[in-house]
């Protein structure tokens, strides 16, 4: 009986270690990517590429960085974060809707 519990708890620790290792790899990858994105962003501006290309790419890179930040460093990809995620996305949707209205209907 005792042996059995011991083995399961050992098994659990193993799983935990494995998960931890995986998470570490994920964080390192996303960290590297984020630094790379930052270099790309600065590089594009320094090389004076056409602003019609730079602006959308910069915004895209920024969005990806925010997603990395939220999901990998603030652990939103882990379990139990569905409700905060839903609230944040709803809030973002309302905010975007407001911005679209103001930029298209009022100031266009």
């Amino acid at each position: 009986m005792t042996d059995h519990t011991d083995s399961t708890s050992k098994h659990k620790i193993d799983i935990h270690k494995k998960e931890h290792k995986e998470e570490m790899i994920h964080q390192v990858i996303s960290f590297t990517l984020m630094i790379l994105f930052t270099f790309i962003a600065f590089g594009m501006v320094i090389l004076e590429i056409s602003s019609y290309f730079v602006k959308p790419v910069l915004i895209l890179l920024a969005v990806v960085q925010v997603v990395f930040q939220l999901y990998y460093f603030m652990h939103m990809k882990n379990k139990g974060h569905t409700m905060p995620a839903m609230m944040m996305f709803s809030g973002i949707a309302v905010a975007i809707l407001t911005i679209i209205t103001f930029t298209t209907i009022i100031w266009w």
């Binding site: 309302v94 407001t98 209205t101 103001f102 209907i105 009022i106 100031w107």
Partner: peptide, 12 residues
């Protein structure tokens, strides 16, 4: 300024 801003904010 623009008074339509109020209308939009109020009705949003």
């Amino acid at each position: 300024g623009n008074e339509i801003i109020w209308e939009h904010l109020f009705w949003i």
